[in-house]
Structure formats: structure tokens, C-alpha cells
Computed example of a mutant assay.
Amino acid sequence: MSFDAGALLLQTVPFARTLGITFDHAADGRAACRLPDRADLHNHVAGPHAGALFTLAESASGAAMLSALGDQLSRAVPLATTATVHYRKLAMGEVVAEGRMLVSRDEVIAELDAGRRPEFDVAVDISNADGVVVCSLTVTWTLRPNRT
């Protein structure tokens, strides 16, 4: 892609900016972003709130998807349709989400070219500063073709 998928996501999703999410990279169907350790984002046990973790993971999934399919925005709108969340361990401190598309760009575009609305998964792991996975998500995305 010739654009910055992380920057595009932060531009179009103000809530991600509100949380202070930043992107380390987004390219080739993969993305990594981080959530700062801020008291106003904490839950009752002083770790990042589940809603903040979800937003971080959804942001990583969206940037991963955009990094592979952003050039299709003129013909389809990306929408998250479902998400499955597994909170594995108490998250503390700054956390990093890493997302990766589980299908190829070519598979998704073939569905669009055939006149179908593709649905595909993006897997995300959130890790703490020690590299321990504290949360895993699978976000299902669709590309809704634009009406002509």
C-alpha cells in the first residue's frame, strides 16, 4: 500500500485517538499498535479496562485489514461484523496488540470481483511488556460493496 494504514485508522476512528493508541507498523495484512498505561484507562484492579483492550485489538485488526485492502475503499466499505474475545491474564502497564489477516488479499478481492460480500477473520494477540499474551481476539470483517 502507498498509504499509512495506521494513520488512516486513527484519522477515521476518533475513539482510538482518545485512548492514545499509537501504531508501530501496518503492512501486508499485519499491524501492531500500543495502548499507553494511563490511570484514566484503568479498571477496578488498576489494569487497562476491557473496553480499552477491545478497542486496541479492533484497531490492530482494522489496520491489518486496511494495510492489505485499503486500495479497495473506492469500491467497498470495511465493517467489523463480529468479535470473539478471550481475556487470558490480568493486563498491567502498556500493552501491544498484533493483528494478522487469516486470509490472503487475493482471496478477498476474488470474492469482491465475483460480486459477493467477502467475510474474513483477523486474529489479534495483546501482550504485556514481558511479551505474555493477556488477551486474544478474532475479529470478523466484511467489505460491503458500494451501491452504484
Rank of each mutant, 00 (worst) to 15 (best):
R38D: 08
G62W: 11
I21Q: 00
R30G: 06
G51Y: 13
S61R: 12
F54M: 10
A60R: 01
G99F: 00
A64N: 13
E98T: 15
P36V: 10
I21R: 02
R17C: 09
A31G: 10
Y87V: 09
F23D: 07
G20Y: 09
P78M: 01
R30H: 12
A60V: 04
A76K: 05
M92V: 14
H44V: 14
R17T: 14
L35T: 03
H49S: 04
S59D: 02
N43S: 07
V77D: 09
T55L: 05
R75P: 01
V95P: 10
F54A: 13
L41V: 07
R34P: 03
H42T: 07
E94A: 14
L19R: 01
H44L: 15
P36M: 08
S59C: 06
K89F: 13
V96Y: 01
R88P: 11
A80L: 04
D24V: 13
L53P: 00
Y87F: 14
M92Q: 15
T22V: 14
R88F: 09
D40W: 09
P36K: 12
R34I: 03
A63L: 05
D37E: 07
A83D: 05
T18R: 06
D40S: 09
G70L: 03
G29L: 08
A46G: 01
R30T: 11
D40G: 04
A76S: 11
H44F: 14
L79A: 15
